[in-house]
Nucleic acid binder design. Sequence first.
DNA 1: CTGAAAGCGCTAACAC
DNA 2: GTGTTAGCGCTTTCAG
Lengths: 342, 342
Amino acid sequence: MKRVTILDIANELNITFSTVARALNDHPAISEATKKAVRETAERLNYRQNKIASSLRSGRTNIIGVIVPSLHVSFFSSVVHGIERVMNENGYTTLLYQSNESKKHEDKGIETFLQSRVDGIIASITTETDDVTAYKEITKRNVPLIFFDRKPEELSVSSVTIDDYKGGFIATQHLIQQGYKKILHITAEQNISIFKERLRGYIDALRHYNIPVDEDLIIKGKFSLDFGKTVVKDFRERGIGYDGVFALEDYTAMGVMQQLMEYKIRVPEEVGVIGFANEAFGSLVTPQLSTIDQQTITMGEEAAKLFLELQKQGKTNTETAKKIVLEPILQIRASSHRSLLR
Amino acid sequence: MKRVTILDIANELNITFSTVARALNDHPAISEATKKAVRETAERLNYRQNKIASSLRSGRTNIIGVIVPSLHVSFFSSVVHGIERVMNENGYTTLLYQSNESKKHEDKGIETFLQSRVDGIIASITTETDDVTAYKEITKRNVPLIFFDRKPEELSVSSVTIDDYKGGFIATQHLIQQGYKKILHITAEQNISIFKERLRGYIDALRHYNIPVDEDLIIKGKFSLDFGKTVVKDFRERGIGYDGVFALEDYTAMGVMQQLMEYKIRVPEEVGVIGFANEAFGSLVTPQLSTIDQQTITMGEEAAKLFLELQKQGKTNTETAKKIVLEPILQIRASSHRSLLR
DNA sequence: CTGAAAGCGCTAACAC
DNA sequence: GTGTTAGCGCTTTCAG
């Protein structure tokens, strides 16, 4: 089956292919009559524009690349939803790449996007990302780059995050207000700013309520459901007591809950647990998991809008790094809701 | 910053750009010395191949488009993982499109992929997909098309599914063997073959164990967590008893469990529940949800391999629709495991 | 309002 | 082993 091009349409109508091109692109200098005729024959011949050719010539692909650690994590797939919504409305296609928390894959994703000449890249870095040369390459080529949630500290580009400090603060404050006195915080071993901010919020909340900060209650590790379990096991073995846990993200918090239940320790009666990110499973488990909502859809939409702005101004982000900070929302559920039980 | 092309490299080295092109593509007729020199200057000049130009000329994009209802559903994101694994290994990039269970979006996804001249499309249809003209357009253009899981009945193209009939059979059989006598089945109102197969498996399992098939126990609806809840509410209102529920997929099963718990009906003691698809949350909830595993990773890998096969043979799928059917795996968890309690 | 012509950056047949 | 040449199907000046 021969591919039909604008030349075929032109021949049908005895006009030139450039007129056809203009008609299809709704160029103002083409008469309605011609446009109509062109559109009709295009339809009849089952014409489909060749985006490749169009992109080669125009230099724009109308594709935006999004790099996320994993789409399994509902936080990321929700943000992607937000991005897609705005992008679709504005005639862009969104290309997704999963780095699987591997720097090697992340680099490959960036490389692929650069070669595919995407019009912009929106990313959230992996936990492995220690140097940012690959990302610098993006800005060097004047390709708009926007980070959301996890961003590297060294790079001055536009980003959308929530106020992670405040998130850490209100999560800890909530536990304190529920009467929990000795609160663990599980954080990441990596140097990712958002996790450090959550930790800072935790510390300041304790201080604010005159609770001594105990370094032994701050656990660093490779966060995951299993790590949450490990922490609970370790503390039992070492015979250290506690009555509250604030984990840097929900899967770790879930691991904590599971291991506590394994030990027949009641949540929230004996130990209160709160996570971070408002993962989809949190409202399905028993007890339901308290968490901090990150306004995922808004986050994605704002990231997309940030890109559109840069695009419109024809600016690259290096000049005007705009940082949008959203409000964290405390999502109180059963796992930390002791007061209701009394 | 000027983009560097193969011409720039050629000028640096005083050779022609076609030699450069061949060197970069590792063409056998180029001397190692030249290749080395080319690669080095390419590196030095920070050259990146323009895939757009390459695709326009060669007619291949090395991109495969994947259309799924939603990446929030871990079944789909797992299959995508499998697809990506095989595709990455074979030098393909995977483009993802979410239809959000909307035929309109699905059509737009197909259109976008066609215009982008992807080398193939792997899809799972929406619950709304009633006619398949859009998909027919794909095969008409000789673009390889492969379905996984949800496929339309009318179209004869390659596909990967599990044996849904058997899945329905063993799920029901399991409930029967656990001693449940009056088993509901929640199925879809839409005409999607895999769901009809699961229903057929349910019916045959009952017959096999000489349990009368009661039409009133087969509920059709728009499956979702909420629909699961609704079903439980309805049965209570109508005062109809039952002691087992087999839902067509896990979210619906979860809704059933939640509403049962709301009514203080114990699972699995009083009512046994089993879902389908082995969603990620199933092992996190209490009680853990029994389900049928669909070998998601394998399913994705097989779909990808099917594409590679078609590609290699230069065939379109219409001639040789190859249907791969995987084995469903019964995943027994607490929600249906009554025998352990005795 | 429409046509003519150039060229985006590469691949691939054909030379030598 | 390397050079020459002709496009892929569009967009986009420049003419008229």
